[in-house]
């Protein structure tokens, strides 16, 4: 039986379709178009086929940037998730402390990316920066402009500072939804603090944790603004992530073709990994 409401629904989602077309599909198609052509400007294009893709996949620069990205995301997750859980577990569950903690936690999340970058760029400088100056004053040789290791530490600490709150807030939401009876039953069963965490809190946080991991992975994998502001990808190429490399290629060298190919590959990687996470999450749901 054909029903009118069905067609009406299509009509109603039309504005969204148009919007998505303009904001995502058309730009994406443009990128696809560029990725298979070569240009020297003046709107003159030559067919290049899969040349840029082949070049890209054989380029050390791309793979190095990619490796940096993966390492960065891995470190970020390895620090932020346990730290976030730890903080969430120790936040008050009732009383005046709750709103105070929540506001404190939300603060870093409200600061724009480039401002975060600027803050840390200044903060870490060893001439005028509060952090850089005192770290050097106690005898540690720290200079993120020259030392790749220091640059990494700075960016990671900055990201942890900026984004751990997100993990905290998500975990906290999961934790407060656990009924008191669970803790009482655990007490009666003689469970240790660790057992309570392992068998009550962690299982109840599992779903929010998956969301947290997904969000933090995608965000960290696409990181651009903060390292660009702080280190500009340096020293050398030590903090040049895919996104920074992409912008350098596209805008710096104006190699539109290779840059387009690169963004497509980048896009596909993010899409693939998000899909993997999504599948894991829905499987987990189905299992329940």
């Amino acid at each position: 039986m054909e029903k009118t409401w069905n067609n009406k629904a299509w009509f109603l989602v039309l504005p969204v379709l148009v919007l998505v077309a303009f904001s995502a599909v058309i730009p994406l198609m443009t990128v696809v178009n560029y990725s298979v052509q070569d240009t020297f400007g003046n709107n003159v294009f030559f067919w290049a086929g899969t040349e840029w893709f082949e070049e890209l996949l054989h380029s050390d620069r791309f793979w190095e940037a990619m490796t940096r990205n993966l390492i960065f995301s891995f470190i970020i997750l390895a620090i932020e998730v346990p730290l976030g859980i730890f903080i969430a577990l120790n936040m008050p569950k009732k009383g005046w402390g709750v709103p105070v903690c929540l506001v404190l936690m939300a603060l870093p999340l409200l600061i724009p990316w480039n401002v975060v970058g600027t803050i840390w760029q200044v903060f870490g400088r060893n001439d005028i920066g509060l952090l850089g100056y005192y770290v050097n004053a106690v005898g540690i040789d720290y200079n993120y402009v020259q030392d790749p290791f220091d640059a990494w530490v700075t960016i990671i600490v900055m990201d942890v500072w900026h984004w751990t709150s997100l993990v905290v807030l998500l975990c906290y939401a999961g934790l407060v939804s656990i009924p008191d009876a669970f803790y009482q039953a655990a007490k009666i069963d003689g469970a240790s603090r660790w057992a309570v965490f392992r068998y009550i809190q962690l299982p109840k946080m599992q779903r929010v944790l998956l969301i947290a991991v997904l969000l933090r992975f995608m965000d960290s994998f696409m990181i651009y603004t903060e390292p660009f502001v702080v280190t500009g990808g340096g020293p050398g190429n030590s903090t040049t992530f895919l996104s920074i490399d992409l912008v350098k290629t596209a805008l710096g060298q104006f190699d539109l073709g290779p840059a387009a190919a690169m963004s497509l590959v980048y896009f596909l990687i993010v899409l693939l990994l998000s899909w993997v996470f999504y599948t894991v999450m829905t499987n987990y749901d189905a299992e329940r």
């Binding site: 039953a185 009666i188 009550i200």
Partner: peptide, 21 residues
């Protein structure tokens, strides 16, 4: 004495089970 030390058992209104076990 704490709940543990009293050595009692309690069944609550809503079932409390350890999901993952």
């Amino acid at each position: 004495l704490s709940t543990q030390e009293r050595n009692i058992a309690q069944v609550f209104q809503f079932p409390v089970i350890y999901d993952t076990m």
